[in-house]
Computed example of a mutant assay.
Amino acid sequence: MTTEQPAPLLDLLATLDLEELGSAQVSVQPLSTAGALAGEAPVPLPDVFAEDITLFRGQSQKQPHGRVFGGQVLAQGVVASGRTVRAVEGQEDRRLHSLHAYFMRPGDDTQPITFSVERMRDGRSFSTRRVHAIQHGKPILSMSASFQAPDRGLDHQDEMPDAPDPLTVASLADIFAGVDHPGARHMATERAIDQRHVEGNLFVAPASDRVADQRVWMRAIGELPDEPLVHDAVLAYASDYSLLESVLRRHGKAWTNRGLRVASLDHAMWFHRPARADEWLLYAQHSPSAQGGRGLGIGRMFARDGRLIATVAQEGMMRFPQP
């Protein structure tokens, strides 16, 4: 990796460089309530399982709105769970293949986050982990992650949609350069991911066409280490950008709509084929449904050569003032 990196990328890499706090074994042994109503002592039951827990701590990136960026917590959860897989002898080559997460509370970007990783299972082919991100004594995210050893099998994929060359599409950094607004400055100079909306962004005005699809080119703004776990974490980080915009685009809305309230509820991601997060990826996004104050976005990430890298699904709370 080159020694000189843009400051936002160095900040992201520092955010992903978690501090390991230690490990512990915790036995879970519930007590039976049978006979308790009659005044008898509870009858102990056998151990359900013993939790092997490793704790990590990571810093938070400052955001204009004061809340932790959800993609940051996802990415740190990937690193935390991946390090416990890497620490198991003979499992160093297991790659992340899926994660399923729930955002439970907004995070405080002035405070670090503690990650509790439970080793749920290490099988012959798969390793499963459960991660909780904790602030102020309460979980802000709960995530399960699964890792797989290299394997062979059936192989097919969707075709990559057509898109113009990424270098012909304006970046957010270009669009918001020189704009004197905290959010604009953040997008222009403080993000580690270069985003280029093929159909135009929704930060200032709604789209002219009310369609539920959009395409976004993206990559890290500098070279990343040659470590697969870092690239998977950065892909998870970037996956939380822009996905719910397919909902806004379908309904002629923009991020600047007065009274708009948005919060990610859950996030799932499947990693199909290895890729570098510092090379151009096309994030093709579609919203199949919005209802009940919630909107669903589905995204597919393609490498520039057409390989399908990952599939993402996210549902978010999306509330507008009622007339």
Score class of each variant (00 low, 15 high):
residue 46 P to G: 00
residue 46 P to C: 07
residue 46 P to W: 08
residue 46 P to S: 02
residue 47 D to Q: 02
residue 47 D to A: 05
residue 47 D to R: 12
residue 47 D to G: 01
residue 48 V to Y: 06
residue 48 V to H: 14
residue 48 V to S: 14
residue 49 F to Y: 11
residue 49 F to P: 01
residue 49 F to C: 04
residue 49 F to L: 11
residue 49 F to K: 06
residue 50 A to M: 10
residue 50 A to D: 00
residue 50 A to F: 04
residue 50 A to G: 05
residue 50 A to S: 09
residue 51 E to P: 03
residue 51 E to R: 14
residue 52 D to A: 01
residue 52 D to Y: 02
residue 52 D to C: 02
residue 53 I to C: 00
residue 55 L to H: 06
residue 55 L to A: 09
residue 55 L to D: 03
residue 55 L to C: 02
residue 55 L to Y: 13
residue 56 F to S: 01
residue 56 F to D: 02
residue 56 F to I: 03
residue 56 F to E: 01
residue 58 G to R: 01
residue 58 G to P: 01
residue 58 G to S: 00
residue 58 G to T: 01
residue 58 G to V: 00
residue 59 Q to V: 11
residue 59 Q to N: 07
residue 59 Q to S: 11
residue 61 Q to I: 04
residue 61 Q to M: 14
residue 62 K to G: 05
residue 63 Q to E: 05
residue 63 Q to D: 01
residue 64 P to F: 03
residue 64 P to K: 05
residue 64 P to Q: 07
residue 65 H to P: 01
residue 65 H to Q: 14
residue 65 H to L: 13
residue 65 H to G: 03
residue 66 G to Y: 11
residue 66 G to W: 09
residue 67 R to I: 00
residue 67 R to V: 03
residue 67 R to L: 14
residue 67 R to H: 14
residue 68 V to W: 03
residue 68 V to A: 10
residue 68 V to T: 15
residue 68 V to N: 06
residue 69 F to E: 08
residue 69 F to R: 10
residue 69 F to K: 13
residue 69 F to H: 13
residue 70 G to A: 03
residue 70 G to S: 03
residue 70 G to W: 02
residue 70 G to L: 03
residue 71 G to A: 05
residue 72 Q to K: 04
residue 72 Q to D: 04
residue 73 V to K: 12
residue 73 V to C: 10
residue 73 V to H: 09
residue 73 V to S: 14
residue 73 V to R: 13
residue 74 L to C: 09
residue 74 L to H: 10
residue 75 A to V: 13
residue 75 A to S: 13
residue 75 A to Q: 15
residue 76 Q to L: 13
residue 76 Q to K: 09
residue 77 G to P: 06
residue 77 G to A: 07
residue 77 G to N: 07
residue 77 G to D: 06
residue 78 V to Y: 13
residue 78 V to T: 11
residue 78 V to Q: 12
residue 79 V to Y: 06
residue 79 V to A: 06
residue 79 V to N: 09
residue 80 A to Q: 07
residue 80 A to T: 05
residue 81 S to E: 12
residue 81 S to C: 14
residue 82 G to W: 15
residue 82 G to E: 09
residue 82 G to T: 13
residue 82 G to Y: 13
residue 82 G to D: 12
residue 83 R to N: 09
residue 83 R to A: 00
residue 83 R to C: 01
residue 83 R to Y: 04
residue 85 V to Q: 12
residue 85 V to R: 07
residue 87 A to R: 14
residue 87 A to I: 10
residue 87 A to E: 12
residue 88 V to M: 15
residue 88 V to G: 09
residue 88 V to R: 15
residue 88 V to C: 15
residue 88 V to F: 12
residue 89 E to T: 12
residue 89 E to A: 15
residue 89 E to C: 07
residue 89 E to P: 05
